[in-house]
Amino acid sequence: MVLNKALKNKKYRVIDIKLDEKLARRLQELGIVKGGKVHMVRRAPLGDPIHICVNGQNISLRDSVCSGIVIEEDK
């Protein structure tokens, strides 16, 4: 599944980033890397963007970016 389908307050593991190279690189630099953990914190009241937490760092990403981040539930 992709990050826009993530449920509030759940933890996920990134398995792939399907975005153009520049954008993918920036996400990785912010700690959103394959195999890394992502905590979905909330959606903005208007439904977009999404607030996630990576390595203790709070980041806001738009739906259009999240749809390129493939995740699975972290057990």
Partner: peptide, 8 residues
């Protein structure tokens, strides 16, 4: 610049 925002 796609909207990637850090919430400090």
């Amino acid at each position: 610049t796609p909207f990637i925002l850090e919430l400090p």
